[in-house]
Amino acid sequence: MGFQINTNLAANNTYRNLNSTQNALGSSLEKLSSGLRINRAADDAAGLAISEGLKSQVGGLTVAARNAQDGVSVVQTAEGGLTETQSILQRMRDLAVQAGNDSNNDASRAAITTEVSSLSDELTRISSSTNFNGINLLDGSAGGGSGKLNFQVGANGDAASQITVDLSGANVKNIANTLASGTTATGGTTFTVDTATLAAGKSTFSSVSGGVTTSVTTGTLTGSAAGGKFASVDEYAAKLTSDSSFNSKYTVSVDKDANGASTGITVTAKDGGVVDTTAPAAAGLGTGSTAAATTGIKFDTAAHAQAAITAIDLQITAVSTARAGIGAVQNRFDHAINVTNVASENLTAAESRITDTDMASEMVKYTRANILSQAGTAMLAQANQSTSGVLSLLRG
């Protein structure tokens, strides 16, 4: 190789290596100072795409866990109101049992009615005052009237990421209206009966109470006459009474004309609902007519007090069912929170493995680059001095 000064190949080569070392040194400094292996897409394009997806899931799960905590708060608030509702209903039942005793005079029963009326007013107040963030929970208005509230407990937009809380059975306002003290019992629905066409078979009755429809279909009812027909209206009414499905929801009585002849039946819903007047699914029953139907319980007679006990028992059962449902969904929320937290922890670990810097490994790279940088700087200085011998030739 000739002795030349215009092109210093050694210096150029040293400079190129030093520039590469400086880039590596800068990259190591950036990773060490940020703690991240991926600071820009150029560091790892595929890793960046995966880590951003994981980051979205972790963020969503964190918020979802808070949503589930809100769900727990909502159901606990609702159950608090239902707990006191049940206590009030138990007190009402005690008063109804007390009123069923004919040792009470009119004044005593009036005092019982006064207390029950006050308790009913408290049920109404509970229904309107039990709310979470301005959402009434126990008056049937939650979820736009459906009684259902949806909680986002997952990070995605699918159905599996939501839990629905059904508060439709926790309508304390409807309970208060149903048990409003001082009104008459709900009127039954009267159906004409034609025994000539009343054949053996099943009968279906339905009623509506508080917007909830209850339908009951009996077992196969068979009369004593030829072909399984019923010999009389009384026999048909007796068969209805003996049917467990019908008897669990309704009572039946036989209507008679002025001569004492049976003309039809009157069906009354035990929950105080209005029985549908449409002819039930039984040949021989005509379209019914409903007596003036009002809700409520009375304590002026022993018979009314006994009816009140039955009506209150139905509401106690309804509240117990609602509380059981709320307790079940609270347990579900607790498990959803645990699952969400575990998933968030695991996804955070996965993101860390992709994006976080291995500080020990990166420090080794930094030390290597730092030493090479110092060595390269020294060698560049030497390379720049390597052509200075030309001056000796020129002076000679």
Rank of each mutant, 00 (worst) to 15 (best):
T287L: 00
T287K: 09
T287D: 11
G288T: 02
S289Y: 00
A291V: 02
A292C: 00
A293F: 04
T294A: 08
T294N: 13
T294Q: 14
T294P: 03
T294W: 10
T294H: 06
T295M: 03
T295G: 12
T295R: 13
T295L: 06
G296P: 02
G296K: 01
G296M: 01
I297K: 01
I297P: 04
K298A: 13
F299R: 04
F299T: 07
D300L: 00
D300E: 04
D300P: 11
T301I: 02
T301R: 01
T301Q: 02
A302W: 00
A302C: 00
A302N: 13
A303V: 12
H304T: 12
H304P: 02
A305I: 11
A305Y: 11
A305G: 13
Q306F: 00
Q306M: 07
Q306A: 10
A308S: 14
I309F: 01
I309P: 09
T310N: 08
T310S: 14
A311E: 07
A311Q: 11
A311H: 05
I312P: 05
I312W: 01
I312S: 07
I312L: 03
I312T: 09
D313S: 12
L314F: 05
Q315S: 07
Q315G: 01
Q315A: 05
I316Y: 06
I316W: 05
I316N: 10
I316A: 11
T317L: 11
T317S: 15
T317M: 08
A318H: 12
A318W: 13
A318R: 15
A318M: 10
V319K: 10
V319Q: 10
S320D: 15
S320N: 15
T321K: 15
A322R: 06
A322N: 08
A322L: 08
A322V: 05
A322G: 06
A322M: 07
A322F: 05
A324R: 10
A324H: 10
A324S: 15
G325Q: 06
G325S: 10
I326G: 06
I326D: 08
I326S: 07
I326A: 08
G327S: 07
G327N: 09
G327E: 07
G327R: 02
A328F: 12
A328N: 14
A328G: 15
A328E: 14
